[in-house]
Amino acid sequence: MENELQNIVSVLVERFDVEPKEFRGQTSLIVSPEKIFEVCQSLRDEHGFTWLEVLTAVDYWPQQEPRFHVIYFLYSIDKSMRMGLRVPLPSVSPTLPTLVELFANANWRERELWDMFGIHFDGHPDLRRILMPHDWQGHPLRKDYPLGYEEVQFTFNAEEIDRDKPYAKE
């Protein structure tokens, strides 16, 4: 099984100029944003990775180039193999092609990335906010977005906080 994964990796390295990495037994490829669609198509159609298991992103703010990494995990149910893909994206207008045609469940996952990170997906059929209210400002999972911590009431400051708390009326 290990050999088979190595073969697939070497084929992809040759064809798409990806950079393989291995950490704790998990192989991942670093793919450029232009090639992600072809790499996924090749993995799905030629190597049997039919299931998009994970689609998420990481923000490396304040680092600007690349600021985001979009992470894909594809799984092959027949061969029980998992392949990771990482796509670096710049800080200014991060954009990727959509994978909805290849994997139907990419639809909501890409919407989630738009909502949470502000990563745009070209060609997505319905790119709206999914988790936050539709009029929400900002993208919460970005590192420069505040957590929104409210001060906790203790005995010494309870009265002070209580005074400003916006209690509801009937």
Partner: peptide, 20 residues
């Protein structure tokens, strides 16, 4: 009642902010 362990952007810190 008070937001509990979730003191963050998404959770209303106590439902008494929206109704008695």
């Amino acid at each position: 009642s008070c937001g509990g362990i979730f003191n963050n952007y998404a959770i209303v810190q106590g439902v008494d902010e929206i109704m008695p």
